[in-house]
């Protein structure tokens, strides 16, 4: 038997009870207040969307559920406003989807291709190409909005999906992400693949793309939300109401609210919810991918 007895048992001093409890309570209190600050407006918009217009006009946003949710939903999805009767919620939803998905896919495909070329090839003008591409990170579309508009006009791409999506892709964010990611892929993988007889295309398709799955998913979420939420560019490039996206349509909604006898607040609120729901859902459901993709840009 192991004996390692203390000759004297030391008296144990009981420490004072820590202030931990209070700390925990204040921490939660701050977080709850913060969460309310962030979510209350959205909740209000949602509950109010279930009320009849007359009531909203009188009392504004309210925290109670009415019975008009489906009516307002029908109005929002199928009713049109404006001059051409082309901008029902359904049409705008379709356009938003096309913009969000088209933008995300375009960015990812072009970004992966360019990043692959920059990272995995011995290219004489690699440094030059790198700078040409990465300078675009510096200047957001907003500062060159007018000349970009003129280019689209000159190419006859007004009110087209191409004109809507392609100029937004002209920045290197995805290329930058994928370049960072490819550089973090172990060097030996490409060497092993070369010895295994894989050429550049095979390596890309068999190894690199499957390896990037998480990264692609994260990118897709970020880019989809970014594309979906675009406002200034769609505002300028789409004049045809049948091309409006939900986010672009918001402006018209707020303008229509002015000066009408009975403004359709319920419909407007529901359109706002429809404009918010898909990106929120994708961000919340794919939280871990999204957070990873977002914070990896920090490095």
């Amino acid at each position: 038997m192991m004996t390692d007895t203390l000759t004297e048992t030391p008296t144990l001093v009981q420490p004072k009870a820590p202030l931990l409890r209070w700390r925990v309570i204040t921490d939660h209190a701050v977080l709850i207040v913060g969460a309310l600050f962030m979510l209350m407006p959205l909740v209000l918009v949602f509950t109010t969307a279930s009320l009849p217009d007359a009531e909203i006009v009188k009392h504004g946003l309210q925290l109670r559920i009415g019975d008009q949710l489906d009516d307002n939903f029908t109005k929002a999805m199928f009713e049109t406003s404006g001059f051409t009767d082309a901008n029902s919620g359904l049409v705008m939803l379709k356009n938003s989807m096309i913009l969000g998905v088209g933008f995300a896919v375009g960015k990812i495909v072009l970004g992966m291709m360019a990043a692959y070329a920059l990272v995995y090839f011995r290219l004489r003008f690699a440094l030059f190409a790198f700078w040409v591409i990465f300078t675009t990170l510096l200047l957001p579309l907003e500062v060159r909005i007018l000349p970009s508009y003129e280019v689209i006009q000159g190419l006859g791409l007004m009110n087209t999906y191409t004109g809507l999506i392609v100029p937004l892709i002209a920045s290197a964010t995805a290329t930058f992400f994928f370049r960072q990611f490819f550089r973090s892929v172990p060097e030996e993988l490409v060497e092993a693949a070369r010895i295994d007889g894989a050429g550049p295309l095979k390596f890309f398709i068999d190894i690199l793309v499957p390896l990037s799955r998480t990264m692609i998913a994260a990118m897709f979420i970020i880019m989809f939300v970014y594309g979906w939420n675009q406002y200034l560019w769609p505002t300028m490039i789409t004049t045809d109401e049948g091309m409006f996206t939900l986010v672009r349509g918001i402006k018209q909604i707020t303008q229509v609210l002015e000066g009408t006898n009975l403004p359709e607040y319920g419909r407007a609120n529901l359109l706002a919810i429809i404009a918010v729901l898909p990106p929120v859902a994708i961000v919340v459901f794919f939280q871990s991918w999204f957070v990873k993709g977002l914070t990896d840009s920090d490095k």
């Binding site: 190894i207 390896l211 799955r213």
Partner: peptide, 11 residues
């Protein structure tokens, strides 16, 4: 070739 970090294809 057998690599130091094995270089197995993770997927």
């Amino acid at each position: 070739m057998v690599f130091q970090n094995y270089a197995l294809y993770p997927h």
